[in-house]
């Protein structure tokens, strides 16, 4: 069956076929087909993780995992959106945590169920080595967990696919927070700047800005020095 023409392709959304123009992102293609996103769309720039999409290409045995706003729709895609992952997040007070080597395991004990199947990594639209950071977390390496998971946008596809029911992205967020609070190097210039702000060094300047008109603001914005 010839499903595409020179200018159009055929995609399938929730089982129904749609003829859409070539060259659109999956998200735009679906909107073109008449779908309206009330959930599952956010920044439209690949940062918010709301538009996680699962698809299977005709003739491919694999499921593929992408962000709808970042991926071009192709002919023969069978698509489904996963705007929400039912993965509970553990509550904790960062300042009261004891950041010992076991802390991630205590809050997310199911990481000990990891069988190293690597399905999470294969599901990650951000190309993160998800299994590796779960393994790092299991052995108590918080810095490594934080570093490997840095590009995570919390789309939740890893947790949807995991046969061990791990909540990877919440656990990794906790690791990054612990790293930031307890382990990252202190930057001296930040401390200095905060002290300056507290002393009121910049108050005069801020007040001047507040009093400016819109056109004055636009003028100084356009003339700003870009590093």
């Amino acid at each position: 069956m010839n499903t595409s023409s020179e200018n159009t392709i055929r995609i399938y959304v929730m089982g129904s076929a749609y003829e859409v123009p070539r060259g659109l992102t999956i998200m735009s293609a679906m909107e073109h087909a008449g779908w309206r996103f009330t959930r599952g769309a956010g920044c439209r720039s690949g940062f918010c993780g709301a538009c996680s999409t699962v698809y299977r290409q005709e003739g491919d045995y694999r499921l593929r995992f992408v962000l709808a706003c970042q991926t071009e729709a192709e002919d023969g895609m069978y698509l489904v959106q996963l705007p929400f992952t039912p993965a509970p997040r553990v509550s904790y007070t960062l300042a009261e945590l004891n950041p010992d080597e076991n802390v991630l395991l205590q809050h997310y004990p199911e990481i000990a169920r990891c069988v190293s199947c690597n399905t999470c990594t294969k599901a990650c639209p951000q190309d993160i080595e998800v299994m590796d950071y779960i393994q790092a977390a299991l052995r108590g390496d918080i810095a490594q967990t934080a570093s490997l998971s840095f590009d995570c946008i919390q789309c939740g596809l890893c947790s949807m696919r995991c046969p061990a029911d791990i909540k990877h992205y919440h656990m990794a967020q906790m690791a990054r927070r612990i790293y930031g609070r307890y382990m990252s190097p202190v930057t001296a210039h930040l401390e200095e700047r905060i002290a300056e702000i507290e002393k009121g060094v910049y108050e005069e300047e801020v007040e001047a800005l507040v009093k400016m008109t819109r056109s004055e603001l636009e003028e100084i914005y356009a003339a700003r020095v870009v590093e």
Binding site: N102, L105, Q106, A112, R113, L138, R139, G140
Partner: peptide
């Protein structure tokens, strides 16, 4: 299992018993 209970258990025991 509470957080405090798991704190007292080594990961080697958790991995094994989950398996």
């Amino acid at each position: 299992y509470s957080i405090d209970q798991i704190r007292c258990l080594p990961q080697i025991a958790l991995v094994a018993s989950f398996r």
